[in-house]
Amino acid sequence: MNKRNKIIYWIATIWLALGMTSTAIVQLVKMKEEVQKTSLDLGYPVYFLTIIGIWKLLGVVVILLPKFLLLKEWAYAGFFFLMSGAIISHLCVEDSMADLFGPSLLLILTILSWYFRPANRKLVGSNYKTVRANRS
């Protein structure tokens, strides 16, 4: 991995971790504005905030740790689905473009972090075979 890709990876990953952590905290403490937006504006139940807040924090831990390659893939996929779902939800209720900024930025950071991750953080053919062999 060249130096440029490593820099892109760490910048994207650190900002992704900060963004996911800060939004998870807001969701877990159920800030008034977040409850308003999620339940009244978007129509999701309030308990949804707890579920996605916990999953975001777990995903951040997995993405930052050097091991757990299969869980890392799941975390990136979860972040992708969560942020694309947030974008679609805001579009469906015709929210302003400002409401799309946060989820769009986190979606871009998710893609950049996933794409530029180093080889030792990727689940590739040989790693997958190793994981399967260890399970047997």
Results as ranks from 00 to 15, higher is better:
residue 44 Y to Q: 11
residue 108 I to C: 07
residue 74 W to S: 10
residue 73 E to Y: 12
residue 57 L to Q: 05
residue 26 V to M: 10
residue 23 T to R: 01
residue 100 L to C: 10
residue 89 S to I: 00
residue 86 A to R: 03
residue 20 M to G: 06
residue 49 L to H: 01
residue 113 S to Q: 03
residue 55 W to L: 15
residue 60 V to R: 01
residue 103 P to M: 07
residue 113 S to W: 08
residue 116 F to I: 13
residue 109 L to W: 08
residue 14 I to M: 11
residue 114 W to Q: 08
residue 24 A to P: 02
residue 80 F to C: 10
residue 96 S to Y: 06
residue 17 A to I: 04
residue 70 L to I: 08
residue 5 N to Q: 08
residue 127 N to E: 12
residue 64 L to H: 03
residue 58 L to N: 00
residue 62 V to E: 01
residue 85 G to T: 08
residue 24 A to W: 02
residue 90 H to A: 10
residue 83 M to H: 10
residue 69 L to A: 06
residue 60 V to W: 02
residue 35 V to S: 09
residue 75 A to D: 09
residue 102 G to I: 00
residue 72 K to L: 03
residue 99 D to A: 14
residue 113 S to L: 03
residue 125 G to L: 08
residue 84 S to N: 09
residue 10 W to I: 05
residue 56 K to R: 11
residue 104 S to V: 12
residue 88 I to Y: 05
residue 4 R to D: 06
residue 110 T to N: 13
residue 38 T to A: 05
residue 88 I to F: 14
residue 21 T to W: 09
residue 82 L to A: 08
residue 86 A to S: 02
residue 7 I to R: 06
residue 59 G to F: 04
residue 27 Q to R: 08
residue 57 L to S: 06
residue 22 S to K: 14
residue 45 P to F: 05
residue 108 I to T: 06
residue 128 Y to T: 04
residue 10 W to H: 12
residue 67 K to M: 03
residue 90 H to L: 01
residue 123 L to N: 02
residue 22 S to C: 12
residue 17 A to V: 07
residue 88 I to W: 07
residue 65 L to T: 15
residue 23 T to W: 02
residue 38 T to S: 02
residue 24 A to V: 06
residue 99 D to W: 14
residue 99 D to K: 09
residue 14 I to T: 01
residue 54 I to N: 02
residue 121 R to E: 10
residue 117 R to S: 07
residue 3 K to E: 04
residue 121 R to M: 10
residue 95 D to H: 15
residue 23 T to K: 00
residue 85 G to R: 00
residue 59 G to H: 01
residue 84 S to L: 15
residue 74 W to N: 13
residue 82 L to I: 04
residue 119 A to S: 07
residue 122 K to L: 13
residue 95 D to M: 14
residue 93 V to Q: 07
residue 111 I to F: 11
residue 60 V to P: 14
residue 61 V to W: 09
residue 102 G to D: 03
residue 5 N to A: 15
residue 101 F to S: 07
residue 76 Y to A: 13
residue 71 L to S: 11
residue 104 S to T: 11
residue 60 V to Y: 00
residue 102 G to F: 06
residue 122 K to R: 15
residue 18 L to T: 04
residue 54 I to T: 04
residue 127 N to T: 12
residue 44 Y to A: 13
residue 129 K to Y: 03
residue 59 G to T: 10
residue 79 F to A: 02
residue 114 W to K: 04
residue 76 Y to P: 13
residue 5 N to V: 02
residue 39 S to L: 02
residue 99 D to P: 12
residue 28 L to V: 07
residue 13 T to E: 07
residue 67 K to Q: 08
residue 11 I to D: 01
residue 52 I to G: 04
residue 95 D to I: 04
residue 4 R to N: 11
residue 73 E to V: 07
residue 73 E to F: 15
residue 14 I to F: 03
residue 62 V to D: 00
residue 81 F to H: 06
residue 80 F to W: 09
residue 85 G to Y: 01
residue 57 L to G: 12
residue 6 K to R: 09
residue 106 L to T: 08
residue 6 K to A: 10
residue 114 W to S: 05
residue 51 I to G: 09
residue 113 S to N: 04
residue 121 R to A: 05
residue 120 N to W: 11
residue 58 L to V: 13
residue 91 L to E: 11
residue 62 V to H: 03
residue 120 N to G: 06
residue 85 G to V: 09
residue 91 L to R: 03
residue 12 A to V: 11
residue 119 A to G: 01
